[in-house]
């Protein structure tokens, strides 16, 4: 178990280096907190129900910010508001550390051309939906209806973000569905903390 933790921290530091995050929480404590999340988001951050997003490998800062927003009421959701209401700052830091310590990789589905990715989205969310901006979540392999629902929430003002509110404001329903379909079709691979990546020793 100690070995696993050490490896996991190593992985975390790599992930952190990319986005400048320092791991603020405790990995093992975070895994326990994730017991509150796993029925919907999975213990490894791979969603078990279509109404929930995958959260494996999201930056600590992103997860922390969303949980704080649900807790304060700045962002509302029938289930997340109930869960976040009971979380302490330490629990939020721990669980963000746990899910962030996972590695998410995505690839195009067979036959897809990366240049067909939605131009409005790729600057922050990448061609395959692995975010290239630490303020943006991964979108790879999320359910298309989940993505469309979020875009519509930004469009209507139910959900607000300094960049997304403007981008979503003028989208049509058909554009929203097309962008959502693109990212939903990606193939997602998640690696647990401490586990060798899918590329193994070649990494």
């Amino acid at each position: 178990m100690k070995g696993l933790s050490a490896l996991a921290l190593g992985g975390l530091m790599l992930a952190g280096a990319a986005f400048g995050d320092a791991p603020p929480g405790d990995l093992e404590a975070g895994r326990k907190v994730a017991g509150l999340c796993r029925v919907c988001h999975g213990l490894q951050g791979v969603a078990q129900v279509p109404i929930a997003p995958h959260i494996a490998g999201e930056p600590v800062s992103y997860i922390t910010r969303q949980l704080a927003a649900f807790r304060s009421g700045a962002r509302e959701h029938e289930m997340m508001t109930v869960v976040a209401r009971g979380l302490t700052d330490t629990q939020i830091a721990d669980v963000a550390t746990w899910y962030s310590a996972h590695t998410a990789r995505a690839s195009l589905p067979p036959g897809a051309d990366g240049s067909a990715a939605p131009a409005l989205c790729v600057t922050c969310h990448g061609e395959t939906g692995i975010a290239v901006n630490p303020d943006a979540p991964n979108l790879a392999a999320e359910t298309n209806i989940y993505l469309a629902t979020q875009l519509k929430a930004f469009r209507s003002g139910k959900r607000r973000h300094e960049i997304m509110s403007g981008i979503a404001a003028d989208l049509t329903d058909d554009e929203i569905r097309a962008y959502a379909d693109w990212y939903a079709a990606m193939q997602l691979e998640v690696t647990e903390p401490g586990a060798p990546g899918p590329c193994g020793a070649a990494c």
Binding site: P50, I51, H77, E78, M79, I145, Y146, T149, K152, S156
Partner: peptide, 8 residues
């Protein structure tokens, strides 16, 4: 349409 949600 403005009442659409993914939940429930």
């Amino acid at each position: 349409p403005e009442e659409e949600s993914y939940n429930h």
